[in-house]
Design a protein around this nucleic acid. Sequence first.
RNA 1: GCACCCGUAGCUCAACUGGAUAGAGCGUCGGUCUACGAAACCGAAGGCUACAGGUUCGAAUCCUGUCGGGUGUACCA
Length: 583
Amino acid sequence: MKPIIEILEEKVAAVMSELAGEKVPAIVKTSQNVKFGDYQANGVMSLAKKLRKNPRELASEVVAKLDLADMCAAPEIAGPGFINLRLKNDWLTARLVDALGDDARLGVDPVEQVGITVIDYSAPNVAKQMHVGHLRSTIIGDTISRVLEFYIGDPDKVIRQNHIGDWGLQMGMVVWAMQNVMEVDASEMTLADLEDVYRKSNILMKDDPGHGDIFRNSTLKLQNHEEPEISLWQNARKVSLDACIEIYKQLNVLLDNDNVRGESFYTDKLPGVIESLETAGMLKESDGAKVVFMDGYKKPDGEPLPMIVQKSDGAFLYATTDLAAIRFRLDQLKADRVVYVTDARQKLHFDMVFNCAKQAGWVQGDARLDHVPFGTVLGNDNKPFKTRSGENIKLKELLDEAQIRAMAVVEAKSPDLSDQQKQEIAAAVGIGAVKYADLSNNLTSDYVFDWDKMLAMEGNTAPYMQYAYARVQSIFRKGEIDTEQLIADAGNLQLNEEMEIALAKQLLRFGEIIASVASELRPHILTGYLFDLAQAFSSFYSNCPVLKADTSVKESRLMLCYQTAKTIKKGLGLLGIDTIEQM
RNA sequence: GCACCCGUAGCUCAACUGGAUAGAGCGUCGGUCUACGAAACCGAAGGCUACAGGUUCGAAUCCUGUCGGGUGUACCA
């Protein structure tokens, strides 16, 4: 089924376009106030202006030609020319019946005409272990990838790419330190050893500038694939990457070794980038470096700001690698859309890289390059979240603490559950809370990391949603309900009470929410929807008895419960958050 | 200097990208459990959307200016 809002948009726009003699939008939106109906078409007012007509008259012409009798009550014209649309109960009911039988997609059609999307996210530097700085990219990117996959309905059309940092000076430093200050054999190296050599090499770099040359030399050898540097590099990289994959598992993020295509992957493609820019006539030389000048970028002194693609010593930079990655993704992976999920501080960088790729003619047809910038995770002091001593907080420690804190809550609230159940709940709630707190924030703003708030059971949090789910499931357990029979009887569904109808309408909005997250790439639209849904359910739950109701009412309410559980589970699933049956 | 992001209830944030009376949560105050799970529900109070102009049927949203905060600004990523 197509989202309701799309059906209405198409129908109203068709009539308006006919009257206008050209294609015009209906601008259908959900109404903010119930007294204005469920949806409203706002396009008539601007069209009236264009046609120099009275907007209310035009609205009545549109309404007269509109054939929505099957799904809506008679449209009302209000205010300066709004067309208010109220869904009919019968239509709503029939639609929910259809959705009830569809466990996989909840009655939401896949959108087949969309092409391949490559999504670049997480991208840790493997010279050290993951820290809070990688949290947002990892979980926002993961959510977007899951939503796009569901939206398109074809797993082959969403390609996840983990652009790890595995080829720079930092790896050269690590490789040198492995040879000179590490006490264990490279083959037995652990993550702690990696941390140790990373820290030591950084201290050397800081204390003795002379080490810069040593490290650069080590990096050069590595980049020439010399031994033993290249073998040591492989060792360190594997140790680090294995740890990342562990974190992805703990975080419930869909990244694995298959998705890794880091900087090192592109090294042999870098000279080609320079050549191609040269051919396009875009390459200039400036202070010995090879650069690209583009309009609109200025240095502090007012002179044009170039994008450097090759340093004066011949080395390439991250701009070069990103350009190579764009070409690879467009040409080899056949991407129609490439989505980059990175810190907002890299906005200028991607702006330049995207512009350069477009000017070089690499971006064909309708292909899109999207940057999804996000704000910083802050501590209580409103500064980037660090330990008291100013170190980056390790992601592993953060996630473990989330589970420990969630466990404390579970112990307090549900002491009678088995230890294993408590463990599972603590994992789902703890990790879910961290992810949900992040995803429910608007992307562009920074947010303050606050354990108490994210683990609170009241308000727009993961535990609130998980609790709503657990309560539904408890009804099915207690009532010993045969859900297959329930679905088979879906045709008996009746919606009478106000709260039943409100819940049904909210359930049926799922499709339009998915569509809007897929196009806007803003996960908080989904969390906001789920919260509204959970609230609609909680109101229903508190006011409409299910198991105690008469048979026919009971059956209908169970269907609402069933669909609510499915929708919450699916919605949280798209956020990479687990539901639990009891908590 | 220039560019980008931002300024909305006491606090944290929404407002579907120009729609109707700007909405939630927390906190505050007041109700609801011998229970389909109170980790919940119901209600109340709380706003000149930083400020000043402009654009139009209509502005938190678009334009201009001012003030305040954040980020970025060539050989790191």
